[in-house]
C-alpha cells in the first residue's frame, strides 16, 4: 500500500525551552512510510514535548516539523491523515464516550461519523459507550483515545505511551492493533518506556535522554551495536567474579538479577574461562551466550555520565555497528 510519498515525519533541529530548562534539544527525526517508530526515553526525556510540537500543540523554540511535507504550526491542514494523542487522552467528562466521539467526528468532518461504532468495537468499548466518560477508568479512556484517533482514518498515527494504564489483555490488544494497522500501511510513531513493547513492535527507534537523541536507527543496527554478551551463574558468585576479573579477554562484568554478565573478546576466552572457574572451585550452573536486550542498551545510553554528541551517535538505519558506549 505504501507508495512513493512525502516523508510522514521530518523533524529538523527541534528545540523547546521552558525558561532555563531545555526540554527538547536539537532533535532530528526521520520517520519513513510504513515505519513503526519507537521513541524511547526515561521520564522527562522530552518525548511528550516532542510529540506536542509534532501535533502543533506547542510552538518550537527553534527548528521545524514537517508531516507529509506540511507544517503543523501553520495550519491544522497539516494534520490531515494524521491522528494521535499526547499523555493520557482526555475527554469531556460530562458527555458519554459515544458523544465524545461524535463531537470529534463532527470536528473531523468527512466520513468520520460513519466510523464511530466500528472504532468503538475495535477498542472493545461498544458496551460502555453510552456511559459518561467521567466514570471511565484510566484504561478505558486510553482505549477511547485510540478509537478517537481511528475516526480520522490516519496514514500516520502518533501515540504517546499508548499502553499505560492498560491491563495485560489491553496491552496485547494494543500491540495486535498496532501491528495490524502497520500491516495495512499505516505509519506509527509511539513513545514508550516499555522496552519489551518497542522491541516487539518497532522496526526503528530513537532513544532520547535529556531532550537529546542518543541513538537513532534500525532496531537491527541497534542490536548489532549492542554486541553479544554472556551470562554466568554459579552458586559461589564471589569466587566466580574474582575469576572473571582476573581472566584475560573478559570485560564489562556486571552483576544482574539473573547472574553475572560479561563480554568476551572471543569464544576461546569463554572456553578458557570455564576451565579457570572449575580450577578455582567455582561450579558453573549456567554459562550461556546472551543477546543484549534493548534494555541494556537503553540504560547504557540513557544513564552513563557521558552522552556522546547526539549527531555522532546517529546513524541512518543501515547496520553500521559502532562499539557500544561503556556504561
Amino acid at each position: 500500500m505504501v507508495t512513493a510519498e512525502a516523508t510522514p515525519i521530518e523533524v529538523r533541529g527541534l528545540v523547546k525551552r521552558y525558561g532555563d530548562l531545555v526540554a527538547v534539544d536539537q532533535v532530528d527525526l526521520d520517520v519513513e512510510p510504513g515505519d513503526v517508530f519507537g521513541y524511547l526515553g526515561p521520564n522527562g526525556a522530552g518525548k511528550t514535548t516532542s510529540l506536542r510540537m509534532m501535533l502543533g500543540l506547542i510552538r518550537p523554540s527553534a527548528g521545524s516539523v514537517r508531516l507529509f511535507g506540511r507544517d503543523p504550526q501553520v495550519s491544522v491542514k497539516a494534520l490531515e491523515g494524521v491522528a494521535g494523542f499526547v499523555e493520557a487522552p482526555s475527554f469531556y467528562p460530562y458527555l458519554s464516550g459515544r458523544e465524545n466521539l461524535r463531537l470529534f467526528a463532527a470536528l473531523d468532518g468527512g466520513g468520520a461519523k460513519g466510523r464511530i461504532e466500528e472504532s468503538l468495537g475495535i477498542v472493545g468499548l461498544s458496551e460502555r459507550a453510552k456511559d459518561r466518560v467521567g466514570g471511565y477508568s484510566h484504561g478505558m479512556r486510553q482505549r477511547l483515545g485510540i478509537a478517537a484517533a481511528l475516526l480520522r482514518e490516519p496514514r500516520l498515527l502518533l501515540l504517546d505511551e499508548p499502553a499505560t494504564g492498560l491491563d495485560p489483555g489491553g496491552m496485547r490488544d494494543m500491540r495486535d492493533l498496532i501491528r495490524e494497522l502497520s500491516a495495512s500501511g499505516m505509519t506509527v510513531l509511539l513513545s514508550s518506556h516499555l522496552l519489551a513493547e518497542v522491541e516487539e513492535l518497532c522496526n526503528r527507534v530513537a532513544i532520547v535522554r535529556s531532550g537529546r537523541v542518543a541513538y537513532q536507527g534500525s532496531l537491527a543496527a541497534l542490536r548489532a551495536e549492542a554486541g553479544e554478551g554472556y551470562l554466568l551463574r554459579s552458586p559461589d558468585e564471589a569466587r566466580a567474579r574474582a575469576v572473571l576479573a582476573a581472566q584475560p579477554g573478559i570485560r564489562d562484568v556486571t552483576v544482574t538479577e539473573e547472574g553475572t554478565r560479561f563480554a568476551a573478546a572471543d569464544e576461546a576466552a569463554v572456553g578458557a574461562l570455564s576451565l579457570a572457574l572449575a580450577e578455582a572451585g567455582a561450579p558453573i550452573l549456567e554459562l550461556t551466550r546472551r543477546h543484549a536486550t534493548l534494555e541494556d542498551l537503553f540504560f547504557s545510553l540513557t544513564e552513563g555520565d557521558g552522552v556522546g554528541p547526539a549527531a555522532e551517535r546517529q546513524n541512518g538505519g543501515d547496520p553500521a555497528p559502532a562499539p557500544v558506549e561503556a556504561a
Binding site: 494534520l79 491522528a83 494523542f85 482526555s90 470529534f104 470536528l107 473531523d108 478517537a148 480520522r152
Partner: peptide
Amino acid sequence: NDTLKGIFTRS
C-alpha cells in the same frame, strides 16, 4: 479537562 489537545488535533 485538558481537552484542547483533543479538539486542536482534529480538522
